[in-house]
């Protein structure tokens, strides 16, 4: 963690109505690294992830306190355009959500709403995104077919391609492989490994082996607080706190 952080938070609290879901979150996330959030269901890890691209704002009755900095700028500052934040911070959802459009139109979606009309340029970026998401070979001959016809694993890689197409700096992944079979999961994990060259990746996962395999840094969440953050290897071999150890050894959670 020698490099300067890409994202950091200061005293972040988050509320769903009257109930507080996150308590005083302070964390630094370094660039070109994979940071994993682990913890039992309802511990706030997904909620925190959604604070990083302001997606929680789409839920009625939520409130946030504290600061989230990306490259030194508070993304919750009034002068900041939320659309700009979400272009810079891409997101892949737990349940793959291809739009009922063609494969090409799915990947081109973010570019088109961004105002890109040049057909050649669109085709070029779509191809690059699909290659980066390791799905190009499977779909290159049927770009005009509906994305709904793809398998679950392909749909999720398509969603990753769609997120990559707008060239974000950060990629948030909310349990991207939880609904996939082991082989599709492995492909996603290999992909994450390749993508960290270019992107800062934050991944939420229920699967501790997955966290151990793909991440450089792991943060353990429990009851809306970060209990421990460290190098993944340290967390899984020599955690400092007993709570962390109990969780990763499967004694609770």
């Amino acid at each position: 963690m020698a490099e300067e952080a890409k994202i950091w938070t200061e005293g972040l609290n988050f509320f769903y109505g009257a109930s507080q879901a996150l308590h005083d979150i302070n964390i630094k996330i370094s660039p070109h690294n994979v940071t994993a959030f682990i913890g039992p269901s309802g511990c706030g890890k997904s909620t925190f992830l959604r604070c990083l691209n302001r997606m929680n704002e789409t839920i009625v009755g939520t409130r946030i306190e504290g600061k989230v900095f990306i490259d030194g700028h508070d993304i919750y500052d009034r002068s900041v355009d939320v659309v700009d934040i979400r272009r810079r911070v891409g997101m892949v959802f737990q349940k793959s959500n291809p739009f009922p459009k063609s494969i090409f139109d799915n990947v081109a979606y973010g570019l088109r709403i961004g105002g890109l009309k040049d057909k050649d340029k669109l085709a070029e970026i779509v191809e690059k995104a699909l290659i980066d998401a390791a799905i190009w070979d499977e779909v290159k001959d049927r770009l005009q077919e509906s994305a709904m016809g793809l398998s679950g694993g392909q749909q999720q890689r398509l969603c990753i391609a769609r997120a990559l197409a707008v060239e974000p700096e950060v990629l948030l992944m909310d349990e991207p492989a939880s609904a996939l079979d082991p082989i599709a999961t492995q492909r996603i994990e290999e992909l994450i490994h390749q993508l960290k060259e270019k992107y800062t990746i934050v991944i939420v996962t229920h699967n501790m082996q997955q966290a151990a395999r793909v991440s450089d840094i792991t943060a353990f969440f429990y009851l809306g607080r970060i209990i421990e953050v460290d190098d993944t290897e340290t967390i899984f071999t020599r955690p400092k706190l007993k709570q962390t150890e109990d969780y990763i050894t499967g004694r609770f959670g």
């Binding site: 997606m55 789409t58 659309v83 700009d84 979400r86 739009f99 973010g110 709403i113 969603c159």
Partner: peptide, 27 residues
């Protein structure tokens, strides 16, 4: 229309109206 269509569009940097116009209304 599933919320995931709206969220998916918003997460790609669509404004609310863009998300509705291009990813909700057609369906």
């Amino acid at each position: 229309v599933p919320k995931s269509y709206r969220d998916g569009a918003l997460a790609l940097g669509a404004t609310k109206w863009q998300a509705i116009r291009t990813n909700v209304l057609p369906y």
